[in-house]
Design a protein around this nucleic acid. Sequence first.
DNA 1: TTGACAACCTAACATATGTTAGGTATCCTA
DNA 2: TAGGATACCTAACATATGTTAGGTTGTCAA
Lengths: 207, 207
Amino acid sequence: MEQLTARQGEILGFIRAFIDRHGYPPTVREIGRHFRIQSSSVFDHLEALKRKGHLEKQGFKPRALRIRDDRGVEGPVTYSEEESVLVPIVGRVAAGLPILAEENIEERVPLPQRLVRHKNSFLLRVQGDSMTGSGILDGDHVIVRPQAWANHGDIVVVRMEDEATVKKLDMSRDKIFLVPTNPAYKPMPAKPNTLILGKVVGLIRGY
Amino acid sequence: MEQLTARQGEILGFIRAFIDRHGYPPTVREIGRHFRIQSSSVFDHLEALKRKGHLEKQGFKPRALRIRDDRGVEGPVTYSEEESVLVPIVGRVAAGLPILAEENIEERVPLPQRLVRHKNSFLLRVQGDSMTGSGILDGDHVIVRPQAWANHGDIVVVRMEDEATVKKLDMSRDKIFLVPTNPAYKPMPAKPNTLILGKVVGLIRGY
DNA sequence: TTGACAACCTAACATATGTTAGGTATCCTA
DNA sequence: TAGGATACCTAACATATGTTAGGTTGTCAA
């Protein structure tokens, strides 16, 4: 990866911070406004960053920037390429409290970043064998990305009463069904008070 | 959080996936292209998603979208409770070489100690669906503790020719059998040259 | 049976956008 | 001492962009 100049480093840092704060990259002119330089000057910097491999850039599209300096080092590696993220294990899900309230958290476990690509993800211990059809066994821990809505076919964590349970979403019919993928169980229609806590994005098992 | 319609859920899901894949949100028309609807129709959907609190939207700015249905799960600051261990991912298993030879190692991933309680453990990517009966799916990574011998009922990694494969050990009969727990496959007797590389002690999956 | 809402449409508008062209000044290196 | 890279500039261009206005159709609860 080619060396950056001080200015190029500033620009890259600004883009990174902007994405952190807003959730989307800045436009050329937004960068320029911050540094009090013209858009064409920013353009030059972006081209340099692209040429040096630190930035991906989709021609002519606004905000189509992606920082690429997080790739690992090539070749045989004898050290960690990857950082760990501390992910909380959620136990009981007390009603009324947000899922990640300290009261619900039992402990925290370091996981590789690739498995936990989103902020506020958490681990939930699976109880029962209702999802064995999807390779989710009793005692497994699922990695959950919090989101209040999910789509047909997603494996989700829903809260019913005081319990968090893992099910597959079936939205193909008139009502929403929570489907256990173990054929020994029957799909149940979602009640009005069922709450989607998040989508299952990973799984961890220890034998 | 107000209820979404099926269509609104699809749109929200597309935006989420797009950000995941590209690093920046889609434009109104990019969403429309995917669903084969007009930009003005997409606009309506985005307004609905904003009104219902699932989306933030900066007026008139392209791609200025931010998904907000993960609120209420603000996590407290995380601190370290557990150390990570660097575990190598083994790719091809070159014949003649020890399984943990540098030539076999693709990369290293940090895992929580509780999952990897033994030295020289490694990760192996599972190919095929022969172990779905044990909740081990195609593409999963199993954590393997190296050992040359295992017991009846253990799930093990064996080397046959140049390939490492995951099977269940059946030693209840006169011969040793390698059992795929997917009933669609048949148990095979162990050949004299089959080598036990280790025992499966854990599993990791990313969706 | 009315009214609200959802889900789409066509057509048009103003403009913020990435980009290009051509220029100046400074610095470092061959 | 020439050349190249860096870091900026002004001016202009084509267009992809979010948005608005004004529809149609169907569904569903009051």
